[in-house]
Amino acid sequence: MDLQILPLAVTMMAGPQIVAAVILVTTPRPVRVSLAFLLGVAIATTAGVTITLGIFALLGQVVAPGSPSERGSAGTVVQLVLVALLVFAAVKAYVRRETAEPPKWLGSLMEAGAWKAFTVGLLVILVMPSDIVVMLTVGASLEQHGGGVAAALPFIGLTVLIAALPLLVYLLAGERGRRAMPRVREWLTSHSWVVTIATCLLFIVLILT
C-alpha cells in the first residue's frame, strides 16, 4: 500500500466519530460498549475498503485517477473539488459557531448498550461523507498499486487504533484519566464547530500533501 494513504486514517475518526468514542468511555459500562464500538469500526472500515476496491477493479482505467503530476488529470480535478468543498464546510462551521450543536444521536450514547455501540461503530464509518471519500481514495490506491484487501490492513489497523485512543486513555491513565474523560466529552460536544473545522483543515492538508 502507498504509505501516503496511512495518514488518512486520522481523518476517518476525526469529527463525530472520535466524539462518539469519548462519550462511550463515560458510560456505566465503558469497556464493554467501547469494544463493541471498535468492532463496528473495524468491520465497517474493512467492508468499505473492500467495496471501494471492488468498484475500482470493475471500472478499471475508466476512472483511473491519474498521476498527480499530470495537468488536468482526473485525480487533480477531484482533489481541487474536495478542497473547495472542505473550505466551504469550514467557513460555514465558523460562521454558524454560535448556534452550532452536536448531532442529537451523540447525546443518546450515554445510555448505549453494546448492540447500539456496535451499530454506531458501523454507521459512523459507512455513512459519513468524509469517510466514504477516504475509503474511495484507499480503494483507488490499492487498485493502482495492484494490492488486495490485505494491503489495506495497516490502514484499517491504524483507523481502529485511533478509535481506541479514548478507551486506552481510560484504561492506562488510571483514576486521573477517568476523571478527565467527562470533561473532554463536555468540551467536544460544546465545541462541535471546532471539531468540524479541524477535521476539514486536516483533510485539506492530507489531500494537498
Rank of each mutant, 00 (worst) to 15 (best):
T76S: 05
D2F: 15
L158E: 00
A21H: 00
S67N: 13
L59W: 11
P154T: 05
L85N: 01
A151N: 12
P154W: 06
V25K: 07
S108A: 13
V19I: 11
V184S: 08
V184A: 09
G147Q: 06
F203G: 00
L6V: 03
I18W: 13
A44C: 05
P16N: 10
R178E: 01
M181A: 05
G147C: 02
I162R: 07
I51H: 12
M181Q: 06
L158Q: 01
M128L: 15
F203N: 01
A47R: 11
S192V: 13
L80M: 14
I5G: 13
V169A: 11
G75K: 00
S69N: 15
V127E: 05
G15C: 07
S130W: 07
F88P: 10
L35F: 11
G107Q: 04
Y170W: 09
A44T: 04
P30R: 02
V133L: 00
E70V: 14
A44P: 03
T189V: 10
E186V: 12
A180W: 14
A9W: 02
V120S: 01
G48M: 10
L201N: 05
L24T: 02
V133T: 01
G15F: 04
V124I: 08
T137F: 09
S73T: 06
M135F: 08
I43C: 08
A42I: 10
V169I: 11
L38E: 13
P28I: 03
